[in-house]
Amino acid sequence: MNQFQYVRPTKQKAAIDALARDANAQFIAGGTNLIDLMKRGVMAPQKLIDINRLPLTKIESQNGSLRIGALALNGPVAEDKLVLERQPLLAQALSAGASPQLRNMATVGGNMLQRTRCPYFYDTALPCNKREPGSGCGALEGFNRMHAIFGFSDKCIAVHPSDMSVALVALDATVLVSGPKGDRRIPFNDFHRLPGDTPQRDTNLEQGELITAVEVPDGPFTKHVHYQKVRERASYAFALVSVAAALSLDGNTIKDARLAMGGVAHKPWRLTDAEKALIGKPATEETFRQAATVAMQGAKAFEHNAYKLKMAPNAIIQALKTAAAA
């Protein structure tokens, strides 16, 4: 790990100023991904701005939404009474991620900013356009078992590893950011980017911007929800594919539906067409199967991840079945 300057502001403005001044600076919150990457030489910031003492940890109910501070920790959020009551899907997704220890460290803002787990990104001796633009994509013709089936480019086929973000994109959350040019709100689906020609950019955050909170609008998705995570071992593993499913039922009729997938794209993958295919239909396996078929339109596999073309729709069906039965 390189030497770096370390500062620990206690005021939001000081933190933003510090970052805005220095292109080689990084915020550090939980550190569970950044320190990992710094140890391996993948990231080498010259300055770390420790934002853990900023007052951004509150979870509060406001008019029509739940506002979760960016520095609220994943574990406590997953067990927060308000979150469990209003947004159980988010709680489930958070609990499916990492380990209890990591959830006690990782923040909500940091979770969104997790970088891909693509092995080529992690090894500085291998090509990776995300780590080193122009060096090539090692995964494209390499070991691409974990990689994208949607939204990839010839520059990058990595996937976003967050579970929490899959629930948040499904729930139409909004990311609140504060920067040198003031505050702005980013719809969750616009927060993460597809790789295109600039895979080095994971999100649409601008230089100097700080995530301050995420807002999750209140909705009808308090009962029939399920986060289905398919992984290689029973716990403490990144998803092969995951599905966040939320249904609002009137009897057996689907009034409203939300669906998103993880482990399939460079960003959490919202499935709006599949949602449309669900609304107004009976909550049956047949309906779920049709929605899954819609969801998979446009999916394309590489040498080692063709299984996702079957696993993903199956996981959607399973998630919807479980959500409907909840």
Partner: peptide
Amino acid sequence: LMEHAVIDDRFGRYITKDFADYHVPVHAD
């Protein structure tokens, strides 16, 4: 069920490098 160390033969280099991609059983398994 899970253990598998993989080399990318183009480079001769292991692609599985740690416990995140070389899985060993955890309590829940």
